[in-house]
């Protein structure tokens, strides 16, 4: 093992012990290790933002570009300048212009992502379960495919109903205004069950991963201690 590998190994071992000390109590060691991570990552982020975005997108093209291209580059420089100047409280209004630009961009990207990235493919996946070719593909499993389709539509409608918190526009016969229509209440109870199943499966996945990480860290500590004790 090279000397640099030993040094990095010792640093990793110490950091692991410092973080795992949280299992006993929230100690200074735990905070020091997390603050060290935040500090290093923040510095790394600044280096990446400057080296990978600002220099290649703004500064380097300025030197090589023609005059008309430089004029185009002035727009992001101006917007970035307004964002920076807006940090001065008296000039805060100026930062609203680049923020409005970013709001428009992110809203449009969110709409596009929601429609083309989620609504269409997920809706298509729900509809696909009702595809007759799929249902009758295997004659022995028709009932299973029909059950699949029924559960899919019931689960999706139920889950959506669980998150429905709309208010009636007109007065209704319901005792309390916050009560949902009865049909929604029934579906939301079904949806609650499906939501629990999904969250349980997600929980199991995350828990397994976290458990593997715990085993890995214990193995690192054991390996490091073994090396030290073996070397004595």
């Amino acid at each position: 093992m090279t000397s640099s590998a030993v040094i990095w190994g010792v640093i990793g071992f110490l950091l692991t012990v410092m973080i795992l000390s949280y299992l006993i109590r929230d100690s200074l060691f735990f905070r020091l290790a997390t603050y060290l991570l935040i500090g290093l990552t923040a510095g790394y982020l600044v280096v990446l933002l400057v080296n990978r975005v600002l220099l290649p997108q703004l500064i380097w093209p300025m030197g090589a570009a023609s005059w008309s291209q430089r004029l185009w580059l002035l727009i992001p420089i101006l917007l970035a300048g307004l964002l920076l100047v807006g940090q001065i409280p008296r000039l805060a209004l100026l930062s609203k212009i680049p923020l409005a630009y970013l709001a428009g961009l992110s809203a449009a990207v969110a709409i596009g992502g929601a429609v083309f990235g989620t609504l269409v493919p997920q809706g298509q996946a729900v509809l696909d379960t009702f595809d007759p070719y799929r249902i009758y593909a295997d004659p022995q499993l028709v009932w299973m495919r029909i059950l699949d389709a029924g559960v899919m539509i019931l689960g999706v409608v139920g889950t959506l109903s669980y998150f429905h918190f709309g208010q009636p526009l007109q007065e209704t016969k319901r005792k309390r205004a916050e009560d949902r229509p009865q049909i929604l209440q029934v579906f939301s109870k079904i949806g609650e069950g499906f939501l629990g199943i999904t969250l349980g499966a997600v929980f199991a996945g995350v828990f397994s991963t976290a458990l593997l990480a715990l085993i890995d860290r214990i193995a690192v500590i054991g390996g490091m201690l073994g090396q030290f004790l073996g070397g004595l």
């Binding site: 429609v115 609504l119 999706v156 499906f194």
Partner: peptide, 13 residues
């Protein structure tokens, strides 16, 4: 679990 996940994803979208 996919059923509830689809509902959640559609709701989020």
């Amino acid at each position: 679990p996919l059923v509830g996940a689809r509902g959640v994803l559609i709701g989020m979208a």
